[in-house]
Design a protein around this nucleic acid. Structure first.
Length: 495
RNA sequence: GGCAUCGUGGCCGAGUGGCUAGGCAGAGCUCUGCAAAAGCUCGUACAGCGGUUCGAAUCCGCUCGAUGCCUCCA
């Protein structure tokens, strides 16, 4: 029996503001769409948080036994820097600055995006469609929306008629806005507009002569509106209605609101059952953003080459740091928080690695392993509450250490359950990586060498030659290998 | 200005109408040749002011503050 049948997963639905029991449209199958990046510069850590959050969702759904189709787009068509009617798009601008082709920009930063997410041990999505690869489909959807009367053409551009849509639909229901309020609070736009109303948004834009990224369409040589690609590609690969749509909080309005409008206008159906929004990662208390320069790149964290951190941190430690907060909470990035996470992470991994050496008791188990395992699931079932999961895993860390000390007992069967559960959650669900264990072949040789030193040190200690024993201990520590004297002998860990 | 979210101990961060997660840091103890590691113990926090309640940090109202969105952004 699939796990999902016995575990009641609840998801916080941004649309209703409530945690709801998750029931996919088709039993056992999940369709999930997540808004991907615009590839015009290096992906920064704030971007990564969102994708790590949804990687957790993806991993847990899979762990529960669902067959998941995870679609995440790459926005590679040029979109304008602001809502003005003229101006350069981001990708073209970058291309001009770096004196390369726009598609070279796209390629370069798509590769960067993939590399970084791989370092964070994110699983690749099932389908990663690009906006430029779906121009034909986007044009078809625009035609449909025009036919249904929810869009109009002006001077080669096509706009979505928000006012007309709002007459018998609710534009703003996701973000809790009312169209009337938006009208009252509309900012003055200096640029001249072809729109009937400022709230209308572009489905197709006629390209200015200097605009390089352009495609022919029935209305003009131009390019699609930003919101359209997600509607088109989610519909194409997941259907007119699908289960989960995710993205960063900052996309809730207007991007996701527009997606709903486009979907409902073109198909008449509610496109998404569960909306999920990952919250922002802040730096110095402010949102990380490419446009303001308030950000840090993952490579700067891994290398330690930055002004914020006192040392380098591995991708897994960084990921662990993020997973210690709920995806719906704002999380502030700081050196102190990373240092704390690193210690905790190492303690967790060390405990896991020591399970194999635990002594078993023929009959007694004073640690309630099965009850504990269910609490791990309970945590994740409660809207992917990774911080509570981690807290629960630390209960096992305590137990493991207590067993090691001989303070409590556990049976062989329970050790097996403990180990499997720890492995499932640490590595499969949370997606953490034991850096030292990655290269197992070399680790074995290294272990042999360290064991030799441990034995030499033990001999020296027996002979009360503490100068030698301390030399071995201290110099190993300097290299990054810590010896740990316990009741059952000495073990070691590698930083 | 509008909409939204949030304000938890030294720091990071969960959670809940009554039984006060977890990590890091700190103090004491145990173990140890010394240390580290590990274990045990300790610290009683929920912005402020009112209200509802037998009881609220948890519900309601107000005040203050922060952040996000309202223009591209994960």
């Amino acid at each position: 029996m699939a796990l999902y049948k016995e575990q009641g997963l609840k998801i916080y639905n941004s649309m209703t503001g409530k945690k709801e029991l998750f029931t996919p449209i088709s039993e056992g199958n999940v369709g999930m769409y997540v808004c991907g990046p615009t590839v015009y510069s290096n992906v920064h850590l704030g971007n990564c948080r969102t994708f790590i959050s949804f990687d957790l969702v993806f991993r847990y759904l899979k762990h529960l036994g669902y067959k998941v189709r995870y679609v995440r787009n790459i926005t590679d068509a040029g979109h304008l820097e602001n809502d003005g009617e003229t101006g350069e798009d981001r990708i073209t601008k970058k291309a001009r600055l770096e004196q390369i082709e726009p598609m070279e920009v796209v390629q370069r930063y798509t590769v960067d995006f993939h590399n970084i997410l791989e370092k964070f041990n994110n699983l690749p999505p099932s389908i990663e469609p690009t906006a430029t690869g779906h121009i034909v489909e986007q044009i078809e959807t625009i035609k449909t929306i025009i036919d249904k009367g929810f869009a109009y053409e002006v001077n080669g551009s096509v706009y979505f008629d928000v006012f007309k849509f709002n007459k018998d639909h609710d534009y703003g229901k996701l973000s809790g806005r009312a169209l009337e309020d938006m009208i009252a609070n509309t900012r003055e736009l200096s640029a001249q507009s072809d729109k009937r109303n400022p709230q209308d948004f572009a489905l197709w834009k006629k390209a200015e002569p200097q605009h390089i990224m352009r495609w022919p369409s029935p209305w003009s040589d131009g390019f699609p509106g930003w919101h359209l690609e997600c509607t088109v590609m989610s519909t194409k690969y997941l259907g007119e209605s699908f289960d989960i749509h995710g993205g960063g909080m900052d996309l809730k309005f207007p991007h996701h609101e527009c997606e709903i409008a486009q979907g409902e206008a073109s198909t008449g159906k509610n496109p998404v059952n569960y909306w999920m929004h990952a919250n922002m990662l802040t730096l110095n208390g402010k949102k990380m953003a490419k446009s303001t320069g308030n950000n840090i790149l993952p490579t700067e964290i891994f290398s330690g080459n930055n002004d914020i951190l006192s040392k380098a941190f591995s991708p897994s430690v960084t990921r662990f740091f993020m997973l210690q907060a709920n995806y719906r909470s704002i999380l502030d990035f700081s050196n102190e928080a990373l240092l704390a996470s690193e210690k905790g992470f190492n303690r967790l991994i060390d405990a896991y690695n020591s399970i194999d050496k635990l002594p078993s008791h023929p009959s007694n188990s004073s640690f309630p392993v099965r009850e504990w395992r269910q609490r791990c699931y309970d945590a994740m079932n409660d809207d992917f509450n990774s911080p509570v999961l981690i807290a629960t895993l630390f209960e096992a860390v305590k137990a493991i250490n207590a067993i090691k000390e001989g303070e409590i007992q556990i049976t062989k069967d329970d050790i097996e359950v403990l180990k499997t559960t720890m492995h499932d959650f640490i590595f499969d669900v949370l997606g953490l990586v034991d850096v030292a264990a990655v290269n197992e072949n070399n680790l074995e040789k290294l272990s042999g060498a360290v064991e030799l030193l441990i034995n030499l040190r033990a001999e020296a200690r027996n002979n009360k030659d503490f100068a030698t024993s301390d030399k071995i201990r201290d110099e190993l520590l300097e290299i990054g290998i810590q010896l740990k004297d316990g009741k059952e002998g000495t073990t070691f860990s590698i930083d």
